[in-house]
């Protein structure tokens, strides 16, 4: 059984078809990358998969469960988490608190009005574990708004990890991260590989070809090819639509 199945998904903004009959079958444990030029509709697709955006047609299934009509919070509870391309954290909360909230969401009731949540060791411990996995545990005490850009990207990842997803949607986790930072980040993701299924949107082609088991190419809202990184690299249609541009630019 596939982890995440997308059938004939569509979305239009006015006359513009942003997601045009997209079908995907993401296998358990794989990293499935979605690449495509700017404006291809990658973030829209992720938002539809996560439930942040409604779809005009088609269906999304998590395992064998149809989740097309479920809200984002309900999808998260079933194990489908996402990270954001543009860092979206709680700026006035510490790094640890940001993650602890995700643990709390997964772990039980938030209708508790008395105990001091900051002293709940189980929450803090689980949050620290997720922070460590994202390589950010040394910054647990810092307010999220004081983090550097690279650290924000790690926090995004840590929060997503703390929800203990079965499928994780990563929207350009490396956006704006360069050099060594990017390398350690890729190594981080590599370590997480196999623990859950990942759908990865990424512009950094080195990272994509290092990490992905399969790659789908999205152009103008349509998937024009799906295959192994090698197959995609040599696909003439893909080269024409996407990779070629980069080579010319370079």
């Amino acid at each position: 059984m596939t982890s995440l199945t997308v059938r004939n998904l569509t979305k239009s903004f006015g006359a513009l078809k942003v997601t045009d009959d997209v079908s995907l079958a993401v296998e358990p444990g794989e990293i499935h990358a979605i690449i495509g030029p700017n404006g291809a509709g990658k973030t829209t697709l992720i938002s539809q998969l996560s439930g942040q955006l409604g779809s005009d047609g088609g269906s999304v299934s998590l395992g064998d469960r149809d989740i097309t009509r479920l809200s984002m919070p309900d999808r998260v509870k079933l194990g489908l988490a996402r990270s954001f391309q543009i860092t979206s954290v709680l700026p006035g909360f510490t790094t640890l608190e940001n993650v602890a909230l995700a643990v709390q969401a997964r772990e039980g009731s938030s209708f508790r009005f008395f105990g001091t949540v900051a002293r709940e060791e189980a929450l803090n411990r689980a949050a620290l574990k997720a922070l460590a996995e994202a390589g950010l545990d040394h910054r647990a005490d810092v307010l999220a708004k004081s983090l550097s850009h690279g650290e924000h990207r790690r926090l995004e990842l840590a929060i997503a990890l703390a929800t203990e997803p079965s499928v994780l949607l990563l929207d350009e986790p490396l956006a704006g991260v360069g050099g060594e930072d990017a390398e350690t980040f890729v190594a981080n993701l590599q370590r997480l590989k196999g623990r859950f299924t990942m759908v990865l949107i990424e512009h950094d082609m080195d990272a994509v070809f290092q990490l992905a088991d399969r790659v789908s190419v999205l152009v103008y809202g349509r998937i024009i090819a799906t295959g192994t990184p090698q197959a995609i690299r040599s696909d003439p249609q893909v080269r024409a639509a996407y990779l070629g541009e980069e080579e010319e630019a370079a």
Binding site: S71, A81, S88, V89, A102, A105, A162, T163
Partner: peptide, 11 residues
């Protein structure tokens, strides 16, 4: 602070 983020972690 950020309602979208809260929804994205399940609230």
């Amino acid at each position: 602070e950020n309602p979208t983020r809260m929804e994205a972690i399940g609230y």
